[in-house]
């Protein structure tokens, strides 16, 4: 049986209460929106990218604890990463929260606090919204992203 505490770890509560890099990034040259209409989770991701590197990243929006914490952790993790590293993190994160039996990929750092989401299929979309929004921002897609 899945344990609530595996989903709701202290780090998640912390990021939910005090989301990091929260707000509009004036120097952003890429933005994308994520919107899960059924939940009402909504976020805008701002990225400042130069020389294939993410120099800065911030987000705004509102949502449940899982989606807010996931977005907050995403911003912390991505700052300073190359686009290649960001792509690898996206793939790893996706694997971590969707593949039930696979081991948690290496190099995920503090993102591993979200590994418990895999036991809660209804909440995977909450955890992945910011990551799919990142993909849209990196690939220049303009329609709002949904993971529902």
């Amino acid at each position: 049986m899945s344990d609530l505490r595996e989903l709701y770890q202290e780090v998640i509560f912390d990021h939910n209460r005090r989301p990091r890099n929260f707000g509009k990034l004036a120097s952003a040259n890429r933005t994308a929106e994520g919107f899960n209409a059924l939940c009402g989770d909504r976020l805008t991701l701002y990225l400042e990218i130069a020389d294939d590197k993410i120099h800065n990243v911030m987000f705004e929006g509102s949502g449940c604890a899982i989606s807010t914490a996931s977005a907050s952790l995403l911003t912390e993790t991505l700052k300073g990463k190359s686009l290649e590293e960001a792509e690898a993190l996206f793939q790893g994160f996706h694997k971590m929260v969707t593949e039930d039996d696979a081991p948690v990929p290496e190099g995920m750092g503090k993102l591993t606090v979200l590994a418990g989401v895999r036991e809660f299929p209804a909440r995977v979309k909450c955890a992945t919204l910011s990551w799919h929004t990142l993909q849209a921002a990196l690939h220049g897609e303009h329609a709002p992203v949904s993971t529902e």
Binding site: A65, F120, R123
Partner: peptide, 10 residues
């Protein structure tokens, strides 16, 4: 301070 979806899961 508690989103409806978090309430729903709990």
């Amino acid at each position: 301070g508690i989103h409806a979806h978090d309430l729903g899961t709990i």
